[in-house]
Design a binder for these strands. Structure first.
Lengths: 252, 252
DNA sequence: TTGTGGATGTCGCCG
DNA sequence: CGGCGACGTCCACAA
């Protein structure tokens, strides 16, 4: 927290839900940023800065123009002008603090564990913004692996005629199997589902479950493993063949 | 870049590197946003909006306050007040456009392939910002898997006395092996490196390489596989044992 | 363009 | 908390 305002018991003015400064001096920027963190606002800072990170790894980033976001949940992100990924960040649950260092505006974010520290040092501030935002809505997403599973449970013949699902997330020594069932001949079947084109790791995953189940059941039990995905790479196909596993093309 | 302005030979006014509006009406917001996209600025919009996405999957998001970023490289991100991940986004290379719909400010981002469309519809705009930002600096990151590899090549005895690296990224039928070498007895050794605690997938990956190499070489060739990581989960240890593979504890 | 595997992955779920 | 696997993963790099 900021080292100010221990007892703001006087009813704060119903401040604007948005407060911004353009090209503020560093003290004004610090004040607005500190107030934003204090109030649990979303804080944005744009300007020329350097960034250092130390934690699971460590990084240095020289001067450049970037966009910093500090969320009320403790997330911090430093975005450059390119890329979907922030160039540096701190996960939710971190604590942010703002200060002046050598006449620079410094935002420091720490968390623990693991111990991680992100320091963003602005030598020039183009913009500071404090936003009182709330979001109650939930994202409704379709086309996931879960939908593929529902499709199969709805109509098991999509996998093959006579296939009967018996369980989902069935536990084995190697982990939980996506769909567990049996074929028309009563043989055990394991499905591994992928919402998109499957690669070698999907095959390895399926193989782990098949091996584990074959061991869990009788030594003589035959266990079929079927990879269900819209498509599979050549290498994945080859690995399937080598392991005596099968493939069924099916999309979410 | 924007697909316009073939001959902007008239010297553009040395416009501010930052232009923002607070609680603009939708037309003013549209004008500033359009100018920002035109100029290749970083565009930010904060306000109450709904979001729809359709492409590799599809999603709907009801009304809430969010922060939209459009980068000059075609990236778009919609951030809510929580989480490190944007609630919706568009990858770099997309094209953004801004318009008025039913009196709302609408930002639409599309790309191809795959065909994907993101529509952000603001019913209330708290803030619009246009920032002329550049970032030449490169991130210097340490503690990656590559550093672990360099550590091993520097001092192969960290793996075991007598270990001799012969190649990195050596190709096999199953893909490229992290480190390929031989032990003191001249046996072929495959290393799979992980910068952090290793799980079952790391073991499967190593097993794929060992199997492929044993096949590529002679049928009677013995190939040792060693997982090198700071630590490994119980399940990973068990899988290593089952497959006759080994583990060496080593951190980047 | 596609394939492949790393990532400070993040995130949710479950023991 | 740690393990485990999905993700509209993103991303760089190689073929």
């Amino acid at each position: 927290m900021t080292p100010t305002d221990p007892d703001a018991d006087a009813p704060a003015a119903p401040a604007d839900r948005v407060r911004t400064l353009t090209r503020p001096d560093h003290e004004a920027a610090r004040d607005l940023a500190a107030a934003a963190l204090q109030r649990g606002d979303l804080l944005t800072v744009v300007g020329r800065c350097t960034v250092t990170y130390e934690g699971r790894a460590a990084s240095e980033l020289g001067p450049g123009d970037r966009h910093l976001t500090c969320k009320p949940d403790g997330t911090a992100m430093v975005h450059s002008d390119e890329g979907r990924q922030p160039v540096n960040w701190q996960p939710p649950g971190s604590e942010h603090e703002v200060s002046l260092h050598d006449g620079h505006l410094r935002v420091r974010s720490t968390r623990e564990p693991p111990t991680e520290e992100l320091v963003v040092d602005f030598e020039r501030v183009l913009h500071v913004g404090a936003f009182d935002v709330t979001d109650e809505a939930d994202l409704a997403l379709v086309g996931t692996e879960e939908h593929l599973r529902e499709r199969i449970l709805d109509d098991p013949a999509l996998v093959e005629p006579g296939f009967t699902p018996l369980a989902t997330e069935r536990e084995t020594a190697a982990g939980a199997v996506d769909v567990f069932g049996e074929d028309a001949a009563g043989r055990t079947v394991v499905l591994e589902l992928k919402r998109r084109r499957a690669g070698p790791d999907a095959v390895s995953q399926l193989a782990r479950y098949v091996d584990a189940l074959a061991r869990d059941l009788h030594a003589d039990a035959e266990v079929r493993g079927i990879l269900v995905a819209p498509s599979a790479t050549d290498r994945a196909r080859r690995l399937l063949d080598e392991r005596g596993l099968e493939f069924v093309a099916l999309a979410p």
